[in-house]
Design a binder for these strands. Structure first.
Length: 598
DNA sequence: CCCAGCACGC
DNA sequence: GACGTACGTGCTGGGT
């Protein structure tokens, strides 16, 4: 049986004693117990610390806010000691909670969740799982304390500290043990640069962005809501009239039955693998001319989506303390290295349709500030040019011409000034298709042209950019040889299906072999830029705030007096984040809201 | 409670 | 004959 030294620190004397022991430690594993999973609204219930394996302390924090702040403040020297390495499992969460109690965690960071993410992006990264795999140890599960998820689950607050401290101490202890194993794994796997130079420096940036939050124009959204709800009602009645019955328009099943069984619109309808009629936007769009009800259903779907997901949902997510919306940027979700955003997802705010644009308008800067948006121009294609070393594609970018037009000119062998809009559109689809590893059939579908024409287009594409073709073949070959592909900063994606005998499964892995290094390298690059921008904003003492990242785009709320300085910092750091065979270019704009700035 | 279908972004 | 461009999150319906 393993003997551990776990202590409940429930008096001022014990706290002082713990503080003395931990003040000079070079490594400090930290964990917090809280009342919830949302860092911006969670209350602190306790803090645990570990400085050596099998030794940990737990400091309970009372519900009374003033008393809580006093206790947290007494431990500030530990958290804000810039000399000691802070180790945590999903440490961004603890940093946000602590920041809301006035403490700013300082010093180098080691997040065990992120260490495992760079090692195995597609596996799970929760502590219980990591402890089992790397330590062969079964941790106390949180459910054992507060009960299973769902109704009736207790809050950590409801439990006496005497019941919590073993669990809480174990978390800090296990996290430290995991760090000791994972740091060796990072070294063995050649993942140190990615972890120490890219992922860890990004953590405080995300803490800053999430706590900053985004301001929302609730009045504008309320107006949109009234307007769209009225329109929705009108369309609903219209649809019932056209159908000759009432039904649930939000049910794809019922829509299919009305359109194809009752009204018998179109030829033979497509079915899903569950036997339902397909009523996707693509199918409906192809039937648009055949019946007035089709357009109405599409319009209904669009409006319902906007209302349910954005217009009526966002105002409810405003944090009453800050008056802002605070998304979570998840750093350990995607297979390629991109961030994701949730609760709410602010990376899929509409921009294309007219109705959707109303929502973007409601994202506004702070008082006295302007909205600033900067985005990489064609970063993925530029990475393709760089990685493939294709002379023609590099030339197309260095010439400064519009890349899709330049591609069209080369494929169709015409002067760039003679490129028609249709030629450019097809070249653009081809450029996107290439990044995703598209097939001839897929391209034909996308462009609504014959397979013959699609084949000729792809042949022309590869003739124009022969090294791109070679790069694609090489990527698949590398995946077969090593079992993985990697980005410019050696972020790996494992592709075990690359040798599958099932052509569909293998095809999927092959497309990933092509796409993952491209998409992942773009993710690496913007992460580098974000950390450097954050660094310089602090160095210049700017009041401007970084507030959102949308894969190839960064958004800021900026005081009028800082506009010039900030724009220069952002564009400079974005464009020089990673020198390549083609220049990186960032475009930008200013406005009184996100739509105007974009 | 979970999955399917759909729709929004890059 | 089926399949056929990457990566995500969230809503609703409908079955369990």
């Amino acid at each position: 049986m393993l003997t551990v030294d776990y202590q409940l620190v429930d008096t001022e004397e014990k706290r002082t004693e713990m503080l003395q022991k931990l003040l000079t430690t070079e490594i400090l594993s930290i964990d917090t117990e809280t009342t919830g999973t949302d860092a911006m609204t969670a209350e602190l219930v306790g803090m645990s610390f570990s400085d050596a394996e099998n030794r940990a302390w737990y400091v309970p924090v009372p519900a009374d806010r003033a008393e809580a702040c006093r206790i947290v403040d007494s431990l500030r020297p530990l958290y804000e000691n810039a000399q000691s390495l802070k180790v945590g499992q999903n440490i961004k969460y603890d940093m946000i909670v602590l920041q809301n109690y006035g403490v700013h965690v300082q010093g180098p960071l080691f997040d065990t969740m992120l260490a495992h993410y760079v090692l195995q992006p597609e596996l799970r990264h929760n502590m219980d799982y990591l402890a089992e795999i790397y330590l062969h140890y079964q941790t106390i599960h949180i459910d054992e304390l507060i009960g299973p998820r769902g109704k009736g689950q207790k809050s950590m607050r409801d439990l006496p500290p005497a019941d919590v401290y073993r669990y809480a101490c174990e978390d800090a202890d296990v996290t430290l043990k995991l760090k000791n194993v994972l740091e060796q794994e990072l070294r063995k796997q050649g993942a140190e640069q990615l972890f120490y130079d890219i992922e860890m420096p990004l953590v405080p940036v995300l803490v800053n962005m999430e706590t900053n939050g985004v301001r929302i124009d609730t009045e504008a959204l309320a107006q949109s809501s009234a307007h769209f709800t009225a329109r929705l009602q009108q369309i609903e009645e219209n649809i019932y009239q056209l159908a000759g019955e009432t039904f649930n328009i939000a049910s794809p099943k019922q829509v299919g039955e009305v359109l194809f069984d009752k009204l018998k619109i179109g030829g033979k309808p497509k079915k899903t693998k569950t036997g339902q009629y397909v009523t996707s936007e693509e199918v409906l769009e192809s039937l648009r001319g055949k019946h007035d009800i089709i357009g109405k259903i599409l319009e209904h779907r669009g409006l319902k989506k906007l209302l349910g997901t954005y217009i009526d949902a966002l105002p409810q997510l405003i944090n009453p303390q800050t008056g802002r919306i605070h998304t979570s940027f998840n750093q350990a979700v995607t297979a390629t290295g991109r961030l994701s955003s949730s609760n709410p997802n602010l990376q899929n705010i509409p921009i294309r349709d007219e109705d959707g644009k109303e929502i973007r308008k409601a994202f506004i800067p702070d008082d006295g500030c302007e909205f600033f948006s900067a985005d990489y121009s064609q970063i993925e294609l530029r990475i393709m040019a760089h990685l493939s070393g294709d002379a023609n594609m590099i030339e197309a970018f260095t010439s400064g011409h519009d890349i899709h037009a330049a591609t069209a000119a080369k494929i169709y062998k015409v002067d760039i000034k003679d490129v028609t809009p249709d030629m450019r559109r097809k070249a653009k689809t081809a450029n996107f298709g290439i990044i995703y590893g598209i097939s001839i059939f897929g391209l034909a579908e996308r462009m609504n042209v014959s397979r013959q024409e699609a084949k000729e287009l792809i042949d022309g594409y590869f003739e124009t950019y022969p090294q791109v073709k070679a790069y694609m073949d090489r990527s698949i070959e590398l995946a077969r040889e090593h079992g993985y592909v990697e980005t410019i900063f050696h972020r790996k994606r494992y592709l075990p299906d690359i040798n599958s005998r099932n052509a569909t499964v293998r095809g999927y892995a092959e497309r990933n072999a092509i796409n993952a290094p491209i998409q992942g390298s773009a993710a690496d690059i913007i992460k580098v830029a974000m950390a450097r921008i954050h660094q310089r904003m602090s160095a210049y003492n700017l009041k401007a705030k970084m507030i959102l990242q949308v894969h190839d785009e960064l958004n800021f709320s900026v005081p009028a007096s800082e506009k010039q300085t900030l724009q220069q910092i952002v564009i400079e750091e974005m464009e020089r984040a990673y020198p390549m065979q083609v220049p990186l270019k960032a475009d930008c704009g200013w406005g009184s809201n996100w739509l105007e700035a974009h």
